[in-house]
């Protein structure tokens, strides 16, 4: 997993988003076992307390669960993962709309742009 942190947002919130993205994208598949807090903290170059806080938050949201002695795992509940995907997508849409409004784009312009991109996607030029 790649860790990059930037300015304003709290580090723990950025970790929550990064792990969520890894789960939603399948990089961390359902049922996968996570490394220990210290290993993850070291890998990300952050304070172990911060990593602990982020993982607890992901547990609270149901994306991770802990087995008493065996470690921490990604949920197998597809509905929870789908909800996380929608939540992340909502965040990107929000950022997109904010940027577009700043550019002075109307809704119809945005839809045209998106459709043009969708066509590109269908023609297989998207590199997926």
């Amino acid at each position: 997993m790649e860790w990059r942190f930037e300015g304003g947002a709290p580090i723990y919130a950025q970790i929550v988003d990064a792990v969520k993205l890894a789960i939603v994208s399948g990089e961390l598949p359902p049922g996968a076992r996570l490394q220990g807090v210290r290993e993850l903290a070291l890998e990300a170059g952050v304070n172990p307390n911060t990593m602990q806080r982020a993982l607890s938050e992901l547990e609270r949201q149901g994306l991770l669960y802990t087995l008493r002695t065996a470690g921490r795992y990604v949920t197998g509940d597809e509905a929870v993962i789908r909800a996380a995907r929608r939540e992340l997508a909502g965040g990107y849409v929000d950022a997109f709309l904010t940027a577009m409004e700043r550019l002075g784009m109307e809704k119809s312009d945005m839809i045209k742009l998106l459709e043009a991109d969708t066509r590109r996607y269908e023609h297989g030029n998207f590199g997926v």
Partner: peptide
């Protein structure tokens, strides 16, 4: 706490 500062002010500690 560092995270509390970042959260409240929307800036990095460096800023």
């Amino acid at each position: 706490p560092a995270d509390q500062l970042r959260e409240q002010q929307g800036k990095s500690v460096d800023q």
